[in-house]
């Protein structure tokens, strides 16, 4: 029994160390810009737009082949939402989202890696009535490039550019008779630290 426990413990420690050596963690901060969330015409053009939003990104990746990794990436954005029509800019309150992507990445060269992912974006309910009177979750597809270079003994500096796409609608829009969904594109730029395999 004692021998069995010893073997299991040894395997667990060795496995964890091996896993840690192959696993990459990162944390970045940056900003995300959005295309128009809703375009409408009510006697004049009306747009609902998100402001450039501060963004936090955390993720991990694990080697699945010599040049490839698979992992997950969690991002959160918090900014403002506003409408534009005529020369009016209406405050639609805050816009808070979180996205979770399953990602794969691979080596491009020169410290640059490509990344592609599929997941979900969640819009948290807003402050009151309006577009985001209730929360909504949409499918998200994205990709981008990461650049890394050693900074400290254990950490790398990482800079990432991302593009993602989803189709936006909300229960409030549907209740108002909107059909389909608006294609929304986002681009983000972030910088941070990564730790793990090099």
């Amino acid at each position: 029994m004692r021998k069995t426990l010893f073997v299991i413990g040894w395997l667990a420690v060795a496995g964890t160390q091996r896993l840690a050596a192959q696993t990459d963690y990162y944390l970045r901060a940056g900003a995300t810009a959005w295309s128009t969330l809703v375009g409408d015409f009510i006697a004049q053009d009306v747009r609902a737009k998100a402001a450039v939003a501060p963004t936090l990104v955390a993720g991990l990746g694990h080697s699945i082949a010599t040049r490839y990794r698979a992992g997950v990436e969690l991002a959160a954005e918090s900014g403002g939402l506003h409408s534009e029509y005529d020369d009016v800019r209406g405050d639609l309150g805050s816009l808070r989202t979180a996205s979770l992507l399953g990602v794969v990445d691979g080596v491009v060269g020169g410290g640059v890696r490509w990344q592609a992912g599929l997941g979900f974006i969640h819009y948290f309910a807003g402050d009151g009535a309006g577009l985001l009177a209730s929360a909504t979750t949409r499918l998200l597809v994205g990709g981008g490039l990461d650049f890394r270079r050693p900074l400290l003994a254990a950490f790398d500096l990482t800079v990432a550019a991302r593009y993602d796409f989803h189709r936006f609608t909300t229960p409030a829009l549907q209740a108002h008779g909107y059909s389909g969904a608006q294609g929304v594109q986002r681009v983000s730029l972030s910088i941070g630290l990564a730790r793990g395999s090099r």
Partner: peptide
């Protein structure tokens, strides 16, 4: 797909 817009009532 991003070219498609929401259908306004």
């Amino acid at each position: 797909a991003a070219c498609s817009d929401i259908g306004a009532p």
